[in-house]
Design a binder for these strands. Structure first.
Lengths: 231, 231
DNA sequence: TTAATACTTATGTAGAACATATAAACAAAT
DNA sequence: ATTTGTTTATATGTTCTACATAAGTATTAA
């Protein structure tokens, strides 16, 4: 009988820095700290938490990485609006993420893309449509692989931009390298996917004169070469 | 003329820990480190980078927070599969995020919800549908607000679960408190939104016997009370 | 009043010391 | 011979002290 049948759970050592980090987060939430609020000095925290200044600094360093805290000499530290995807960005490396996670993120981006329709139609402007047409126009008679990738990014990036939602846009920008990685891995395994029946030109036409419903269906077909490869 | 017209950018002091953190990340990527690989000892890193062990530890502490590094006494440190949303989770507090970011995240969750259709239809099982029906059944004749919220979470949570995508599921779970916060804030401003023409029962019926296209449209209508409030 | 100066303070960095867990090697016991 | 106990070396965890550095504050000089 293997050890795993005993369901022994691995003891993971919790360090002081872990505890202090959590205490600080709880402290901020409990006291409804807002960006701009000053927080206690390192030595005061160390004294209050009964740990060395070093441990406090390790915990603070973590929060600084997330943009949650800013510090200046003499002036002390203030809470600040964190970079919501800061931690996400650092961790998003195809080489260190599990295959399943990469696959999940690949799907996540496709789900996003399918769900954009209503936001796009709600907020599109004539200028947006004109730029989309320009992007599509530029891609005609271009066959180099490197250009195609750039064009893909420009076109779909513009779609995200049209939502007017900078958070979604940032999110998709972060997911992009993952998407490309998964696509290239798939191509190694299964070859170049068939070209979709619906191209960028068709999508633009629908944005111009069609309905969200038509767009959703068109986008599904546009993505279907990828979609059909999902398990 | 105000200072802002000079486009002076705020000098933000870059600390050694910031630099070392970046160097470490670059080092891992450049050398194609994979989870399980051992990384140099603290003292070696300090020596190589010509900084104190203290600074190295602050940088390492950050990566440990993201789950990117695990350390054990004597055994040293190994790279590990990071928690992809770990940093995100810590930062997701309605009180410290800007109103616009909250709004963006609110929309992001709606976009996700609209995009789920194809994954759900691709992977649904009879058991899934049965459970959805059970959830809907339980909600009949329940009118307490607290129950309604729980029911909402259970129903939509099940929809996410049916995608079989644990990353998407985790993501939506993290977004949930934000969603609830924004909804409650909106209710304070504009009152309770009108009840949608499409309820959970209708959605289940479509999942059972309908098409992804019908589901998308139904979900749009289901969410329209929220959607119509978007600027 | 203004400007130059010194003082104070909180963060940033360095280095040493010790605590603690544990891998590895070795010795003892069954 | 395999297991069990003991020793030892070592890498991380924690604390302490000291000093550097930037930036408010108070003081002084013009």
């Amino acid at each position: 009988m293997g050890l795993e049948s005993y369901q022994i759970e691995k003891v993971e050592s919790v360090t002081m820095a872990d505890i202090v980090e959590k205490r600080l987060l709880d402290y901020f939430k409990k006291n409804a700290f807002k960006p701009g609020d000053a927080i206690p000095k390192e030595l005061e925290l160390a004294e209050a938490l009964q740990v060395s200044r070093n441990v406090v600094r390790e915990a603070l360093s973590r929060l600084k990485m997330l943009g949650m805290i800013e510090s200046k000499k003499k002036r002390g530290m203030v809470l600040s609006e964190p970079d919501i995807f800061g931690g996400f960005e650092r961790v998003l490396d195809p080489l260190i993420l599990e295959q399943q996670t990469l696959q999940d993120l690949f799907e996540l981006r496709m789900v996003l893309e399918m769900g954009l329709a209503d936001l796009i139609f709600r907020r599109k402007t004539d200028d947006d449509v004109a730029e989309l047409e320009r992007i599509v126009q530029k891609s005609i008679n271009q066959n180099k692989a490197s250009f195609k990738v750039k064009h893909e990014i420009a076109f779909h990036g513009k779609l995200y931009a049209m939502t007017g939602n900078t958070t979604i846009m940032r999110f998709q920008n972060l997911l992009l390298p993952i998407f490309e990685y998964v696509v290239s891995e798939e191509e190694k395994l299964y070859g170049i996917p068939p070209i979709s029946d619906v191209g960028h030109g068709d999508l633009v036409e629908i944005i111009k004169n069609g309905t969200p419903q038509e767009f959703k269906e068109a986008m599904r077909i546009h993505l279907s070469p990828h979609f059909d490869r999902l398990s």
